[in-house]
Design a protein around this nucleic acid. Sequence first.
DNA 1: CTGAAAGCGCTAACAC
DNA 2: GTGTTAGCGCTTTCAG
Lengths: 346, 346
Amino acid sequence: MSQRKSVTMKDVAREAGVALSTVSHFLNQSAPLSEETRQKIKKAIEKLNYRPNLTARNLKKRKTNTIGVFVPDIANPFYAEIYKGVADAAREKKYNVILYATSYQKDREYDFVRLVTQWQVDGVIVSYSLIDENLWSKLERADIPLVLVDVYPVNNRWPSVVVDSETGIQLAVQYLFNLGHREIAYLSEPPYILPLVKRQQAFIDSIKHLKLPLNKEWILVEKKQANRVEIGYALGKKLLSGKNLPTAVVTSSDLVAIGAMKAFLESGLKIPDDMSIVGFDDIIFSSYVHPSLTTIRQPKYEMSKKGTEFLLQLIERRESFALQDKLHRIKPVLVERLSCSAPRKR
Amino acid sequence: MSQRKSVTMKDVAREAGVALSTVSHFLNQSAPLSEETRQKIKKAIEKLNYRPNLTARNLKKRKTNTIGVFVPDIANPFYAEIYKGVADAAREKKYNVILYATSYQKDREYDFVRLVTQWQVDGVIVSYSLIDENLWSKLERADIPLVLVDVYPVNNRWPSVVVDSETGIQLAVQYLFNLGHREIAYLSEPPYILPLVKRQQAFIDSIKHLKLPLNKEWILVEKKQANRVEIGYALGKKLLSGKNLPTAVVTSSDLVAIGAMKAFLESGLKIPDDMSIVGFDDIIFSSYVHPSLTTIRQPKYEMSKKGTEFLLQLIERRESFALQDKLHRIKPVLVERLSCSAPRKR
DNA sequence: CTGAAAGCGCTAACAC
DNA sequence: GTGTTAGCGCTTTCAG
């Protein structure tokens, strides 16, 4: 094979003239040592350029101190935030994190499951709705600590941290209503995860609840997976091509909103004067587009951080949790920026 | 400890009534087996829900089949692209990748070095300029396969894939010049990596070369680390507060450009009519801001993919490489979009 | 406080 | 084809 020869604890022990276990104790501070031995060992380590082998340690301890995160696409700022929450929580407890991103490619889901089931990680955060039922059951059999973030409980098996999508959409619609809008459209990426389904339904419910017109042409839901911004752009154009134009738009995510804004601006509409728009997520870019985007803020970072802290508890205590603890619903808030105003008379 | 009891190859062998090594051969396809034994083993694995322990395998083979990627900030789309290139190249060769992002926090750099030096990864892609000289030397001592991406060779020690920043900036300045601009500013994030230093110098050189006025007030370089877009926004405002306004701006990165655009638009300037702007990088968002951003495209994905392929060769062949192979310079191209036009008479 | 010894689960000769 | 065996580098009793 191709490996370099490596310096082991044994070498260090020999060099320092102590027993192997003493070196181990030194490294793990698992026993008090005399200052003299400490120095000898320190010197030996330095001299030999010894570096402990984590793999061996992991094998022995049957623990890797690593958790996995599973997301569809890391270039999506939403998931980048999720990742950060996980990474920060993990770091606090001295865990490493290994990221899996599928780019929405199905075969990659299997790779992830393989990783998880081969003792490479102590637990896993899933922010991805595995399409394949089969994969969920494999994860179930593996019986590995798992927490879902932004994914509703599957099989009532794993704890889950989600944002309350219904409240979010209600917030958006009510906000537009209060501004005077009566004709509101909804643009959505493919509802491949439950929150997206719920948002769509919540939109319809909210419109009905306010007794506003429910125009089928104004509920545009993309079917094909693609870049979120491109989807928004396409949906925006589609909306513009209809005979009746609404005065405001609610979207399933900020990326879709940003794409739609581009379509509107290109066509010469002014935002917010001719068209108000509200997003969902509050990714970092939403405050930097022009005009800045009013949106429903999902506390992604906090969600994934909290979920991860929970996961680490599961790992370290192997504790079972009460059913009522399984679903954590976080309330979203509306972040008011410059993409909405009262409708202009047309 | 907290681990679940685990089913091992030994259990499978017993259950199937064959020798342990036979199971190993089955798993690794390292020897041809009779159909009968294969079936027996398969059944036993299924029955016991056996899952191979990668940690043990790694220890034995002294190889983890994992590479590390080191970046400052994964929420920055530029680095998300870098990550994708690495992930795809790794996947092709059945390697896992583990991501380290520091969020520009110095103490996290040490975590990364620790990971690398503890045999957790077979090699590493670094797209980050470690500030601490000391860390570089630790990596050097560890003697682990390492390839730099978007970082110039350090100590002439590691191979490196970089974009030709000078050419990029020349392209930008020449393009603006050809449009008729004579008063051009340069906005830059902190030049914490060599390419940024080179871009700044290349800007000055280009201006001189074209015999244009070199106004100190028009070369705005931020000192403090911060979100790139916020930096751009702040620099944009600063530029606006000066007494003379240029007609065009070149920036060190798209994120800075996007921030600056926001500042310009807010102040009522029209882009490109009142101010032309060109970015550097071509991140995905640049085509979705309004107006879409003309920029110098860095083939980030290709760079990191290529770098990773190179790394994997180093790992698998432990080959040394000729000096002239160490630096791969990729030529950038100008992507023309809608943020530039001829200057308006003022 | 120090040292000897028994594995963690797997691979890879090497015999049979 | 199949089985035996010696470790990979480390942790962790348990004696001294």
